[in-house]
Design a protein around this nucleic acid. Sequence first.
DNA 1: CACCAGGTAGATC
DNA 2: GATCTACATGGT
Length: 248
Amino acid sequence: MRQENQTLIVESSADEAEDQLEAFLRHYLDLNRDLAAILDAVDIDPFIHRSIETFRGMRILNQEVWECLASFILSQNNNVPRIKGIIRTISTRFGEKIALDDLVDYSFPTPQSLADAGVETLYDCGLGYRAPYLWTVSSTIAAGKFDPEGLKSRPYAEAKQELMGFKGIGEKVADCICLFSLGHVQALPIDVWVKRIIEQLYLKREASIREIRRFAEDYFGEHLGYAQQYLFHYARTVGLENLLESEG
DNA sequence: CACCAGGTAGATC
DNA sequence: GATCTACATGGT
């Protein structure tokens, strides 16, 4: 998939009809959402203004629920390169091989394949203490006792609560799943970065998770998740210090 | 050898 | 509820 100016060019080895592939991609890339309206609504101060100015067009993907859920369980108290490495490892070991011309890659493993692999094998992939978390959810899904895709029909608060029922899924990971795979743009995953951003840019002091959430919900409103994404991306790629300077 | 990384569970007050 | 700590692993 590549973009040339205003055109997206897609090549696929799947045997789907063209219009189905297009419909899928429109949803996956969140193109059906009125981004301009959202950015307009959250563009309320110099910090987020600069983030929007710099990254206008960035959208939040609607990832597959299972892949998103599993990936964010692995993300807890972990760094991005290692998270990527672990996902790469389990995909190579338990996913399906996918080929397009001379490109070869592996799909994200199914719940069943991870359930079959067993906890010990997952430890071997370097998951650390997250191994039993991932294995348990995998097994529950494989046994038909939980349907991740079924969460799509539920309101934000319900989906979040159900997700938090699993060991290894706390508030932050649940919010990631809600935002990145269920389309709930009011969800706010508060990780160390979001905490830092709200504290340094807005509150000018240390604050608890509860305080951060209360402030951000009140301040940004219903499109909180998108506001977060623009600030987060600016802080991580350009730098939080650069945002601080954009005041006034 | 400390400290950190897209946190969470369990214990405790 | 708010606060404290252990937790696997790999990188500075």
